[in-house]
């Protein structure tokens, strides 16, 4: 996905995303450069207390050396088949390409199985997004998607997994993660190679 749209008011979009995403119960963080992002991820991994962390492969995560951040936090990068990694991990880290300011939504080409399982099976999900991927609303994203081949599996994620099926009481973390952390990355590291 193309994430470079220069000349946009990124700060305003970021501000709007923070508001709408937090309203859904997600945590939103921001790092100014790849080194800061690595430190931030390390801190967040440590804070979750996860012993095993699954990382779904993505150029952005490679560029940030996300796996190094995991081990620096004292956790183990999960190994084995995709299922095994995702089932065992206490935390999953995946990269997203776009973010929608109006609704606090993250957009991911989740055609690769590891992205789907690593973002869904662990109880905590850490999503890394380039700041340049911010868009105003769903219509803008759908128009962008319509211009190219649709990915096999496109995932839109807005906040943690939720249900209100028993007595309409909102409860977080049914089938998917109960905690969603979003890390925006500025600058070079935020550009998908």
């Amino acid at each position: 996905m193309n994430t470079g749209t220069p000349g946009r008011d990124t700060e305003a979009l970021y501000g709007a995303f923070v508001g709408s995403s937090r309203a859904l119960g997600a945590e939103v963080y921001r790092a100014g450069d790849p080194a800061a992002a690595r430190e931030l991820i390390e801190r967040l991994v440590r804070e979750t207390g996860a012993r095993e962390v699954a990382v779904a492969s993505a150029p952005l995560l490679d560029a940030l050396e996300a796996e190094k951040a995991v081990t620096a936090a004292g956790a183990v990068v999960a190994t084995g088949s995709v299922r095994e990694r995702a089932v065992r991990a206490g935390l999953g880290i995946t990269a997203f390409e776009l973010a929608i300011a109006a609704t606090g939504t993250l957009v991911q080409d989740a055609t690769a199985l590891d992205r789907r399982l690593v973002s869904m099976l662990p109880p905590v999900h850490l999503a890394v997004v380039p700041l340049s991927g911010l868009r105003a609303d769903l219509r803008e994203v759908m128009a962008e998607l319509a211009e190219r081949q649709m990915p096999g599996y496109l995932a839109l994620v807005s906040g943690p997994s939720r249900t209100a099926d028993i007595e309409r009481v909102l409860t977080i973390g049914v089938h998917g993660p109960g905690r969603l952390m979003v890390v925006f990355v500025d600058g070079e590291g935020g550009r998908v190679p």
Binding site: S20, L24, S81, V82, R83, A102, T103, G104, T105, T111, A112, L113, L138, R139, M150, P151, G152, Y153, L154, A155, L156, V157, S158, G159, P160, S161, R162, A164, G176
Partner: peptide, 26 residues
Amino acid sequence: EVLPRSATAQPITSYVTMITGPVGAE
């Protein structure tokens, strides 16, 4: 835009999935 707002007064549901052709599985 209209469906989750009308259904449960949510701006969007937690997950929206768009599947275009078969993908991988284990």
